[in-house]
Every structure is written in C-alpha cells, then in structure tokens.
C-alpha cells in the first residue's frame, strides 16, 4: 500500500483531543459514582422484603440490561422529553442513561456480594442486638466489598467504553472529537488509530488492575 502515514497534523488538534479525553473520563468517573450510589439503592431494594419495591426495581433493571445502551441513549434524549415535556441537554440525557445503565449492573454486583456473605454473620450480628443498618455497615458490607471490587472495576471499564456512544448525541467525547477532526482533515486512518490508542492507554492499566485484584482475591 502506498499510503503515507502522517500523525504530525494531529498536533494542531491537541486542544480538541484534550477536551475529548476530559469528557470521556469525566463521564466515566461521574457515572461510575452516581451509578454506584443508585446501584446500592437497587441492591438494598432488591434485598428488602418489600415486594412492590423489589418488583419495580427488578423490572427496571431488566429493561436496562436487555436493551442496547445506544437505544437507551437515543430514547432518553429524543423520546423521554415527549413524555415528560422536559427538554434534556445531550449531556444530561447521557448522564442519566449511563447512570441507570451502570447502576443496573453495579446493583447486581453489590447484591451478589452481599448475599455471598455467610448467613452465620447475619445471625451473629443480630444476636448481639445490632440494628439492621449497623449489621449492614459494620459486618456485611466490609466483607462483601472485598468480593465486589474486581467485578466493579470490570464494569467501570465497560462503562468507559460505553461513553463512546455519547458521540451520537454530539456530546464532545473522545470519539466525537475524532469525528470532528476527521471531517476537517480527511485523515480517518491516523485520527481513528490515535483515538483507539488513547482508549487503550487508559483502559489497559485498568483491566490489568482488575485482573490483579481478582487473582489476589482468589486465594
């Protein structure tokens, strides 16, 4: 092939790329945190013996787990405002969607961690007279947390990958900036290669970290 590689021109777009990296990271971290908070509530609702809460939450989780994120994003941005009458900016729509999508997976990880703790631990805490929240906070969660960390990190990696879908709503994430640069420079090969490399540089250490944690937990 005669193609002349030339990455040099990308330097002039470093501002755009920087903004893209920032958006991608901010959305990942922001929705990981909000997703964890909502996920915790989902887990507690599903573990409670309130039938209605459990049924509603389970239904919502299934919707988010069994439809593509891309469809959810488009639905929340274009369809939800028709129902509610409230216009959402692309960023807000994206934040809501990724939060709920992440939360439906985080919630299951947290619930799994909690129910993996031996029933005898609940008995022991209760027998001492601990209230429900003390039992959860001082006995169950500290033990569950160790087991939850590796899958939570893995889910966060997926969450970062999913932020690339924000480009369809014109949220200036890394991929969207790549599209901008491509349309200005007509050099998709270098541009998209660089975009992929940046994702890799961010994600590779994170996945290694998750693997290491998993290995450490398994013995």
């Amino acid at each position: 092939m005669q193609y002349q590689w030339d990455f040099g021109f990308l330097l002039q777009y470093k501002g755009l790329i920087g903004v893209g990296v920032l958006y991608t990271l901010a959305f990942t971290i922001g929705t990981a945190v909000s997703g964890l908070v909502v996920g915790c509530m989902i887990a507690l609702a599903r573990l409670s013996n309130m039938r209605v809460a459990t049924a509603v939450v389970t239904g919502v989780i299934e919707i988010f787990r069994c439809t593509p994120v891309l469809v959810q994003l488009v639905w929340v941005y274009y369809a939800l405002p028709i129902l509610t009458g409230i216009e959402l900016s692309p960023s807000v729509a994206a934040f809501i969607t990724l939060t709920l999508y992440g939360a439906s997976f985080f919630g299951e990880i947290i619930r799994g961690g909690i129910i993996s703790v031996d029933m005898g631990q609940w008995d022991a805490g209760r027998a001492l007279g601990m209230r429900r929240h003390q039992l959860m906070g001082d006995v169950i969660l500290p033990q569950a947390f160790r087991r939850m960390v590796p899958p939570l990190v893995n889910q966060t990696v997926l969450q970062l990958k999913n932020t690339s879908l924000l480009s369809v709503l014109a949220v200036p994430d890394l991929l969207y900036q790549g599209q901008l640069i491509t349309s200005a420079s007509y050099r998709p090969l270098e541009t998209y290669t660089m975009i992929a490399v940046i994702y890799f540089i961010i994600l590779f250490p994170l996945t290694r970290f998750a693997h290491r944690l998993e290995a450490r937990m398994s013995h």
Binding site: G120, D123, A124, G125, R126, A127, L128, G129, P142, Q143
Partner: peptide, 16 residues
Amino acid sequence: RARTGMVFQTFNLFPH
C-alpha cells in the same frame, strides 16, 4: 436480642 447471648456451632466470628 441485646439482652441474650448466643453461641453458634460454626462460631460465626467476624473475620474482618
């Protein structure tokens, strides 16, 4: 429950 003490077959100490 706080007024009674209970000891279990499997000890159930808090491992952390």
